[in-house]
Design a binder for these strands. Structure first.
Length: 272
DNA sequence: AGTGCGACCCGAACGC
DNA sequence: TGCGTTCGGGTCGCAC
């Protein structure tokens, strides 16, 4: 379940291994993942090098001198680094082989992830990038900005926190955690949230994402060429996936409900 | 325009 | 035990 912190970990880990290696081959085993024509991507990637890996929201940007290969992991996307002679396994859908026979495999059991190659100067023509809001760790995320985005919306705060055009990079897990930390009930509507509460949301989002990124960073050394890259944050969750257990703050029982089709966990006593 | 919801996928968890 | 069913996760696109 990659969210911003996991994507950041993947980015930092891959950077250590694949930058400035000439790309020798590009193969697609499940076409819907790649939004371009396979041949188009081969023409523009083979012979090039990735000179950097960047991140915008949950999108990874593999940068060459002329293009970005954009990659969204959705829920279960992972990258594995193997040797090019290793057999392609069941859920490995895209392979990039480097000159030194390092083989980077995109692995995605549910096939929800997406990739797209785009010219650098057209990056912001791509909807997925153009629509990204402000990240929790950016100073531009202010209580005024959030109030402006929330106060005319008559939908649950849980849904608003998951809207990537407002805050970029929060997923279902951290949305629950941010609302708990800010003391706001996930069903409260945006138009019932005060500017003071927007300040709390901003502070909670920044705190939780900063910590999550730090923790993601600590898992780098557990990464090996055959294990893939994931974050490890479960032990710090206050509400998410804790239905029926006691709230760490007040001992009330953590509740679960569906909001906008997403499971949401919260404490009725601590979140108003 | 704003909002709600099904579709996309498939392994895991659950119910019988 | 084994079978069928439900769930979940982010995002898009369609219906209201």
């Amino acid at each position: 379940m990659p969210e911003i912190a996991e994507v950041e970990t993947v980015r930092n880990t891959l950077k250590l291994r694949i930058l400035n290696q000439k790309i020798k081959d590009f193969k697609v085993f499940y076409k819907p993942i790649l939004l371009n024509d396979e041949q188009f991507v081969r023409e523009h990637l083979i012979g090039k090098k990735f000179i950097d890996i960047q991140r915008i929201g949950k999108w990874l940007l593999f940068e060459t001198d002329t293009h970005y290969l954009l990659s969204h992991l959705r829920m279960e996307g992972k990258y594995f680094l193997k040797d090019s002679s290793d057999p392609i396994e069941k859920h490995e859908h895209i392979e990039i082989v480097f000159e030194n026979n390092l083989s980077m495999r995109y692995h995605d059991t549910r096939k929800f992830g997406r990739m797209k190659l785009i010219e650098k100067d057209r990056l912001y023509e791509f909807e997925g990038i153009k629509k990204q809001g402000i990240e929790p760790i950016q100073d531009a995320l202010t209580k005024e900005y959030l109030y402006e985005k929330f106060h005319k919306r008559h939908i649950p705060m849980k849904t608003l926190l998951l809207d990537q055009t407002i805050i970029s990079g929060l997923g279902n897990i951290y949305a629950d955690e941010v609302l708990f930390d800010a003391g706001i009930h996930p069903m409260r509507h945006g138009d019932a949230v005060s500017i003071q509460e927007c300040e709390k949301i901003k502070n909670s989002a920044r705190k939780i994402i900063t910590k999550a990124i730090e923790m993601g960073g600590t898992t780098i050394r557990s990464y090996t060429s055959s294990l893939g890259v994931t974050g490890r944050f479960q032990q710090y969750l206050m509400v998410h996936k804790r239905e029926g257990e006691q709230c760490y703050q007040c001992k009330n029982i953590i509740q679960k409900m569906k909001i906008g089709g997403r499971s949401s966990y919260y404490c009725e006593h601590c979140q108003k």
